[in-house]
Amino acid sequence: MGTHPTRTAVTLCAAAALAIPLGTASAAPSAERTGHHHARDPVLVDCFWSPEVRPGAFLLACGDGNSHLVSLNWSRWGSQSAMARGVNVVNDCKPYCAVGTFRSYAVTVRLDQPRTWEKDPDRQQFTRMSLTYHDGRPEGYPRTVTYPLWS
Rank of each mutant, 00 (worst) to 15 (best):
Pro5Ile: 01
Val90Pro: 13
Cys97His: 12
Tyr147Ser: 03
Gln113Phe: 02
Gly136Leu: 04
Gly78His: 05
Gly100Glu: 15
Tyr96Thr: 07
Leu149Phe: 02
Leu60Cys: 00
Arg33Ala: 12
Arg143Lys: 04
Val43Asp: 01
Thr116Asn: 07
Thr6Pro: 00
Ala31Gln: 07
His134Ser: 06
Ala28Gly: 08
Gly63Phe: 00
Arg40Tyr: 15
Met83Ser: 08
Pro148Trp: 09
Lys94Tyr: 14
Arg103Asp: 07
Leu60Phe: 02
Val45Ser: 15
Ala39Asn: 07
Arg103Ala: 09
Trp49Leu: 14
Asp120Met: 00
Asp46Gln: 09
Met129Ser: 06
Arg33Asp: 11
Val53Ala: 05
Arg123Ile: 09
Thr127Lys: 05
Ala19Ser: 08
Leu72Cys: 10
Ala106Glu: 15
Thr24His: 13
Ser81Trp: 03
Thr3Trp: 03
His134Tyr: 04
Arg7Met: 04
Ala98Arg: 09
Ala98Ile: 06
Val45Tyr: 13
Val87Phe: 14
Leu60Val: 00
Tyr133Met: 07
Asp46Thr: 04
Pro42Thr: 06
Gly100Asp: 12
Ala14Val: 00
Met129Gly: 03
Val89Asn: 13
Met1Pro: 14
Gln113Lys: 08
Glu32Phe: 07
Trp150Lys: 04
Glu118Arg: 08
Asp92Glu: 05
Pro138Arg: 07
Pro51Arg: 03
Arg123Trp: 14
Arg40Glu: 15
Leu72Trp: 07
Ala27Thr: 00
Leu22Arg: 04
Gly63Ala: 00
Leu44Lys: 08
Leu60Lys: 01
Asp135Ser: 07
Pro21Gln: 10
Ala31Val: 02
Ala27Asp: 11
Val45Met: 13
Trp74His: 06
Ala98Cys: 08
Arg85Trp: 09
Arg143Ser: 05
Arg128Gln: 14
Glu52Val: 03
Gly2Thr: 04
Asp92Lys: 01
Ala98Glu: 06
Val70Ser: 14
Ala25Ile: 01
Ser30Asp: 14
Thr3Tyr: 02
Ala106Met: 13
Tyr147Leu: 06
His68Glu: 02
Arg123Cys: 11
Leu18Ile: 05
Ile20Ser: 09
Tyr96Val: 02
Ser79Phe: 02
Trp77Gly: 01
Pro114Ala: 01
